[in-house]
Write a protein that binds this DNA or RNA. Structure first.
Lengths: 231, 231
DNA sequence: AAGGACTTGATTGTCGACAATTGAAGCGTC
DNA sequence: GACGCTTCAATTGTCGACAATCAAGTCCTT
């Protein structure tokens, strides 16, 4: 395994995927010597990686008590959607003004690709989610607001991905979502920022509602549940 | 100087205020040995503090090249307002639903206090800014969405404070702002989330416009200007 | 036997030194 | 005189060890 970049970067990435995938379960105490040993590095880079993950909101850190993987309660998952609604709505509005014609075309091509996949394989969850994040990511970038894009791709994205992965939430309604995506692109193509924002917000509101319904039927861990065990 | 908390915390705080105040000018290269020496600590805690500041968006870090204080271009300052508009609008909408009657009363009391100060001293910039952030902060907390509140109080707040401090931007229009604040509280008191969001967004749009006008008349540093010197 | 203070173990926080990479100064060559 | 290469200093990245803090278990006291 060759090393691209510094140790802190690699460990951060590995821990990130481990947390998202649930290999490091929610609430897990992150023991520094144990983790450093496990990944074959020293505690220095590990601590810096943990600090970075703390900034991403994937880990909480209490002085003299160590770091723990966050625990996403039902309420917190829904709260993420509220923030997304606000930020992605604004992103769509800005994108309607800033996006180049070529980017609009590329976005249309992307959606056409999604349509093929959905038709072919009935919208398998994996492709659907990847495609969905791809779509939203492009709009975030097209807003030409790096801070906004970074918030969506950083804090929000990883936490949401963590929930999706672990609840194996399959995006019901892929056709519906695709249709909403197309409407959003249409609004952007017509440079109607107001409409693009409205459509995007409704799009995320519907997704939030779908998640809320699924959460309704699932048991929830206690509000501030903390798990033990490191490996 | 007794120590509340860990070294990393203290250094992080000191660096934060130094950056906001411009004592560490924008684009300054942050030399680790020099800084550690200056604050009388080792490089370990310093590096962790830098990583935390990186998460707050006050510092950029390039591998093998060190960390630098960010440089806020005009465009970036305005972009912060766009993000604020989206997030604080959502915060106001949520606050309208979640805020307790007592909190509404406290908010009203706060605004009454502001009114007195403005009448008495003509709205001195310092008090005005402190009061303004206090108002917005309370609404962020009242949204009962910790992630949302943290974004506003973290990344956005510090960067904006940095600009305000260094441009010695005096909030023109304190009376107008106060009036807008009162309208927002009224909407919240009537539990009209829709209206509260609209008013908050307009409020921030106006602030953004005022900043844009002031920026128009000021010279701007080159887009990716980088300054040397550490102390 | 129950409660509390003490001790002990483990974990985090901090430090100084070594290794690796970068950027620039100095030299030689064309 | 200008360009490219080599060498060197400085800075960042990494490591292992020591000190401080916290939590749990034990022992003593009442």
């Amino acid at each position: 395994m060759l090393e691209p970049g510094t140790l802190t970067d690699r460990i951060c990435e590995q821990l990130k995927t481990a947390i998202v995938r649930g290999e490091l379960a929610q609430g897990t105490k992150l023991n520094e010597p144990a983790l450093a040993n496990r990944y074959g590095i020293s505690r220095g880079p590990l601590r810096e990686a943990l600090r970075r993950l703390e900034g991403l909101g994937l880990v909480v850190h209490v002085p003299h008590a160590g770091a723990r993987v966050i625990t996403l309660s039902r309420a917190e998952v829904l709260q993420i959607y509220d923030v997304r609604e606000a930020l992605e709505g604004m992103a769509a509005r800005l994108a309607a003004v800033m996006m180049t014609p070529m980017e609009v075309e590329e976005l249309r091509a992307l959606l056409a690709q999604h349509a093929c996949r959905i038709a072919a394989e009935g919208g398998r969850a994996y492709f659907q989610h990847e495609g969905d994040t791809d779509f939203h990511n492009r709009i975030a970038c097209a807003s030409r607001n790096p801070g906004l894009a970074q918030m969506l791709r950083g804090e929000l994205y990883h936490r949401l991905r963590m929930y999706r992965y672990q609840s194996s939430q399959q995006s019901s309604r892929p056709e519906r979502a695709l249709q909403e995506h197309e409407q959003i692109v249409d609004a952007i193509a017509e440079r109607d920022g107001e409409l693009a924002e409205t459509l995007m917000r409704r799009h995320i509101q519907r997704a939030r509602r779908a998640v809320a319904e699924q959460l309704q039927s699932q048991p929830d861990q206690p509000p501030n549940f903390v798990a033990e065990e490191t490996r």
